[in-house]
Computed example of a mutant assay.
Amino acid sequence: MNPPYRGRLAPSPTGYLHLGHARTFWIAQQRAQAAGGTLLLRNDDLDRTRCRPEFVAAMVEDLRWFGFDWSEGPDIGGPDASYNQSERLPLYIAAFEHLRTAGFLYPCVCSRQDVLRALSAPHQGEEEPLYPGTCRNASPDHPRPGVNWRFRVPEGETISFTDGAIGPHAEIAGRDFGDFLVWRKDDLPSYQLACTADDAAMRITEVVRGADLLTSTCRQLLLYRALAEPEPAFYHAPLMNDEHGVRLAKRHDALSLRTLRERGAKPAELRAAWNAVL
């Protein structure tokens, strides 16, 4: 018997949400409603340097204005509180220690520039660069803070899943992605670990997010396996571009929900116009 459907919206309050976020989140809400399931809101606020209280308040206000409705979240509570990642550190530490004890992690003293300099080919984009394995044999007997910690991927293994939007997807560990960060030297978990630990603890049955996170999903599948947690289903929605074909980002203030709301835009009309900019 399949567990009840549980989906989530998981924005990061590092800026104002834009129309691309709204489209992906709307798909998540529609899929939860179609399954007669539960939708929760999680505030992914681990980035201490970029997350700001005003963005958290705007996030909730703008999502409500657009027509989103969740039954658990930082504004209303729920059985899995707290719904703020900044208040869930004990969960992440426990996951980290599980992985370290099981031999999946090693400390890494390499900076991002060290990694980039070691690569034989130039790295472009926001994706984590392929780690060359410099610290792979380092002893795990090291205090957690002060160094980065990486997950040792099974080199050459194909990591595959069937996505609800695009169908079968596969990547090869060690070729398409390398040993990835799970804990940062500032003593905070990486996105990969925090997201996986939270989705597992909150019993999320399907993760709906943007197609730019396909490789992150392959990394997280390895974490689910290492943590002995059941894997959710995945649905990677197509990304939205502006009129110049550039992927929407939080710097696109003209298409932020806050700006559109202030200009008197109507959510139903915005949703009707989505297909014109895809």
Rank of each mutant, 00 (worst) to 15 (best):
W183K: 04
A272N: 08
L222I: 04
W183C: 09
L227Q: 08
R100H: 05
L181K: 02
A273N: 13
C135W: 14
A165F: 13
T217W: 13
P13G: 09
F68N: 03
G210C: 07
V147H: 14
T38Q: 15
L248I: 03
D114N: 08
N148Y: 13
L222N: 11
D163M: 02
D163L: 07
G73N: 11
H236Y: 12
A228K: 15
P232Y: 08
R258T: 14
G20E: 11
H18M: 05
L116G: 02
G125A: 08
A276G: 05
H98S: 13
E155S: 14
R263W: 14
Y16D: 11
Q220M: 06
V56T: 15
W149A: 10
P154F: 13
E72V: 12
A32Q: 06
G15Y: 14
I27K: 15
R247W: 00
P140L: 05
F151S: 07
C195L: 08
Q192R: 05
G133P: 01
P13L: 12
L193Y: 09
A228P: 00
E54C: 01
D179C: 02
V277Q: 12
L227Y: 08
L255K: 09
Y16Q: 02
G133T: 02
R271T: 09
I76A: 05
R50C: 11
I172P: 01
Y131A: 05
A102M: 01
A228N: 15
H18G: 08
V277R: 14
Q29P: 12
L17F: 11
K185R: 14
L99T: 05
T49Q: 15
L99M: 09
I172H: 00
E54L: 06
V246Q: 15
V60R: 11
R225S: 15
G146S: 04
S190P: 01
T259E: 15
D114G: 03
V56P: 00
W274A: 09
L248C: 05
L91H: 13
W26I: 02
T162Y: 12
P74V: 01
A138W: 11
R100L: 07
L193N: 05
E87T: 02
V153P: 10
L257Y: 07
R100T: 04
F55P: 09
P267G: 07
G73A: 11
R261S: 12
A254I: 11
T14K: 05
R144G: 02
H244A: 15
Y5S: 06
L99H: 07
L89W: 14
H123A: 15
L63S: 07
A170G: 03
D212C: 03
E206L: 10
R52N: 09
P145Q: 06
P238D: 00
A95Y: 00
A170D: 01
T38M: 12
V208H: 11
C195V: 12
